[in-house]
């Protein structure tokens, strides 16, 4: 497949996000209680939905990676965990900037916020572990297993506002949001999804190319290394 095709969802997504954000910042009416600060919802909620979904995508890739032992699934796991980490980190910072003017604090250890923070750390942990393992066979298994374990927290984070008393409000749904707010929110979500898909695709292509280069150097292995070693000795 031509790697350049991934630019299609990425560019479409960036354009759609610009439109959605224009809608949220300029066209949407002021929220009745929060005032202008309520506009943060149009950036925050799509980030949350997309971040969680990228966690799910990473989980599917991880299962495929362990089941098939193919490098493509492993690279997909790496790319989607990376994008999920990025989005969930962004999510926490957006949330803090929304929390200060509404709740009165940047952060509090309520179940939703705590589980999201754990999610960021565990996804980041997968990437760190992965970077420490150089043997691709082991790396694939370490990445797959840790991604599946880290994913457990995604549904917990999602349902935390239903299960426990939280400072964070209950999850937003179509019925809890006034009609004139909706289009911008849904377009923002679609845009973030397209961007995330494009970025995962492009990143995977880059990582795959790198893996092939590394394999080209080390996997032809022994014979080539021996020749080089002999050449070195001979030279010295």
């Amino acid at each position: 497949m031509n790697d350049k095709l991934w630019f299609v969802p990425l560019v479409l997504g960036l354009v759609a996000l610009a439109v959605a954000h224009y809608g949220g910042l300029v066209m949407a009416p002021t929220e009745a209680m929060m005032g202008e600060v309520g506009r943060i919802m149009y950036a925050h909620v799509p980030t949350a939905w997309t971040g969680m979904l990228m966690g799910l995508v990473a989980f599917v890739f991880a299962c495929g990676s362990l089941a098939t032992s193919k490098d493509g699934w492993d690279i997909g796991t790496h790319a989607s965990v990376e994008v999920a980490t990025l989005l969930c980190t962004l999510l926490c910072i957006q949330g803090a900037l929304w929390a200060k003017p509404t709740w009165g604090v940047y952060w509090d250890w309520d179940p939703r916020l705590t589980s999201t923070a754990i999610l960021v750390l565990s996804f980041a942990g997968v990437l760190i572990l992965r970077a420490l393992v150089h043997d691709q066979g082991k790396r694939r298994i370490v990445t797959g297993v840790t991604t599946i374990l880290a994913f457990v927290n995604v549904p917990i984070t999602y349902y935390s506002v239903k299960w426990w008393n939280t400072l964070h409000q209950d999850m937003s749904s179509g019925s809890s949001i006034a009609d004139e707010f909706k289009w911008s929110l849904y377009l923002g979500w679609l845009a973030m999804m397209l961007i995330a898909v494009g970025l995962v695709g492009l990143r995977s292509a880059g990582l795959m190319a790198r893996l092939r280069r590394e394999h080209g150097e080390t996997a032809l292995p022994k014979a080539k290394q021996k020749i080089e070693l002999l050449a070195e000795k001979g030279g010295a």
Partner: peptide, 11 residues
């Protein structure tokens, strides 16, 4: 409003 712009810019 500063918080709003900060969030969008950061995104």
């Amino acid at each position: 409003e500063g918080f709003v712009y900060a969030v969008y810019a950061l995104t």
